[in-house]
Measured scan of single mutants.
Amino acid sequence: LRGKKKEELLKQLDDLKVELSQLRVAKVTGGAASKLSKIRVVRKSIARVLTVINQ
């Protein structure tokens, strides 16, 4: 992550946020259990990207 440019990080952040919103919709509509663990992974990925951006 640290080797990427800021523009790439921001694009990745947008993609992750879109994916997270889709997973939340799937959870509300009764999605599979595998998607519940994926939510945690995506949230941590967002946190990692934000950490690198803010450093």
Rank of each mutant, 00 (worst) to 15 (best):
L1P: 02
L1M: 11
L1F: 10
R2V: 14
R2I: 15
R2L: 15
R2D: 06
R2E: 05
R2C: 07
G3C: 01
G3S: 12
G3E: 09
G3D: 05
G3P: 05
G3A: 03
G3K: 12
G3T: 10
K4I: 12
K4A: 04
K4T: 12
K4Q: 03
K4S: 08
K4E: 02
K5E: 02
K5A: 12
K5P: 07
K5I: 15
K5S: 07
K5V: 15
K6G: 03
K6C: 01
K6W: 13
K6R: 06
E7N: 06
E7C: 04
E7G: 10
E7M: 15
E7Y: 09
E7F: 14
E7L: 14
E7W: 13
E7R: 12
E7H: 11
E8I: 10
E8K: 15
E8A: 11
E8P: 05
E8T: 13
E8Q: 14
E8N: 05
L9C: 03
L9K: 03
L9I: 07
L9W: 11
L9Q: 01
L9H: 02
L10H: 03
L10E: 01
L10S: 06
L10M: 11
L10T: 04
L10W: 10
K11S: 03
K11Q: 02
K11W: 00
K11E: 01
K11C: 00
K11V: 02
Q12A: 14
Q12E: 03
Q12N: 07
Q12Y: 12
Q12S: 10
Q12H: 14
Q12M: 15
L13F: 12
L13I: 08
L13N: 03
L13P: 03
L13H: 06
L13D: 03
D14M: 15
D14Y: 14
D14S: 15
D14I: 14
D14A: 14
D15T: 11
D15C: 14
D15F: 09
D15I: 11
L16T: 04
L16W: 13
L16R: 03
L16F: 08
L16P: 04
L16M: 10
K17E: 03
K17D: 04
K17I: 06
K17H: 01
K17L: 11
K17M: 06
V18N: 15
V18C: 15
V18M: 13
V18E: 11
E19K: 15
E19I: 15
E19G: 14
E19R: 15
E19T: 12
E19V: 15
L20H: 01
L20P: 04
L20Y: 02
L20C: 02
L20T: 04
S21L: 10
S21F: 09
S21E: 05
S21T: 03
S21D: 00
S21M: 08
Q22L: 10
Q22V: 01
Q22G: 08
Q22M: 09
Q22H: 08
Q22A: 02
L23N: 08
L23A: 05
L23K: 10
L23E: 04
L23C: 10
L23H: 01
L23S: 13
L23D: 06
R24L: 15
R24C: 05
V25W: 14
V25G: 07
V25Q: 06
V25R: 08
A26K: 12
A26I: 11
A26M: 11
A26Q: 05
A26T: 09
A26F: 12
A26H: 06
A26L: 10
K27G: 04
K27I: 05
K27V: 04
K27W: 03
K27Q: 03
V28S: 06
V28Y: 07
V28E: 05
V28N: 03
T29W: 14
T29V: 15
T29G: 07
T29Y: 09
T29H: 06
T29A: 14
T29E: 01
G30A: 13
G30C: 13
G30E: 10
G30V: 14
G30R: 15
G30D: 05
G30Y: 08
G30L: 14
G31Q: 13
G31Y: 12
G31D: 09
G31C: 13
G31F: 15
A32V: 13
A32G: 03
A32Q: 07
A32N: 03
A32Y: 07
A32R: 02
A32M: 14
A32C: 13
A33G: 05
A33W: 13
A33I: 13
A33L: 15
A33C: 12
A33N: 04
A33M: 14
S34F: 10
S34L: 09
S34I: 11
S34Q: 10
S34A: 11
S34K: 13
K35D: 01
K35N: 02
K35Y: 10
K35V: 14
K35M: 13
K35T: 10
L36A: 03
L36Y: 01
L36F: 11
L36C: 01
S37G: 12
S37E: 06
S37F: 14
S37C: 13
S37W: 11
S37A: 13
S37P: 07
S37L: 12
S37N: 08
S37K: 14
S37D: 04
S37Y: 05
K38N: 05
K38W: 05
K38L: 07
K38S: 04
K38C: 03
K38A: 05
K38P: 06
K38T: 04
K38E: 04
I39K: 00
I39C: 08
I39G: 01
I39T: 02
I39R: 00
R40V: 06
R40H: 08
R40N: 09
R40C: 13
R40S: 09
R40K: 10
R40P: 02
V41W: 14
V41D: 13
V41E: 12
V41K: 06
V41N: 11
V41M: 12
V41R: 09
V42Y: 06
V42K: 00
V42S: 06
V42F: 09
V42D: 02
V42I: 11
R43W: 14
R43M: 05
R43S: 10
R43K: 10
R43F: 12
R43Y: 15
R43H: 10
R43G: 11
K44F: 02
K44N: 02
K44S: 08
K44M: 02
K44V: 01
K44Q: 10
K44A: 05
K44W: 02
S45A: 13
S45Y: 08
S45G: 10
S45D: 06
S45C: 06
I46F: 12
I46P: 00
I46V: 09
I46G: 00
I46R: 00
I46K: 00
I46Q: 00
I46C: 04
A47V: 04
A47P: 01
A47C: 12
A47H: 10
A47G: 09
R48K: 11
R48T: 04
R48L: 00
R48H: 04
R48I: 00
R48Y: 01
R48F: 00
R48S: 06
V49G: 03
V49A: 08
V49C: 08
V49D: 00
L50M: 09
L50S: 02
L50D: 00
L50P: 00
L50V: 07
L50F: 10
L50E: 00
L50W: 12
T51Q: 11
T51S: 12
T51G: 08
T51R: 12
T51Y: 09
T51A: 11
T51K: 10
T51N: 09
V52H: 06
V52N: 07
V52S: 11
V52Q: 10
V52Y: 13
V52M: 10
I53S: 00
I53F: 12
I53R: 00
I53D: 00
I53T: 01
I53M: 07
I53L: 09
I53E: 00
I53A: 02
N54V: 10
N54E: 01
N54L: 12
N54T: 10
N54W: 10
Q55Y: 07
Q55V: 02
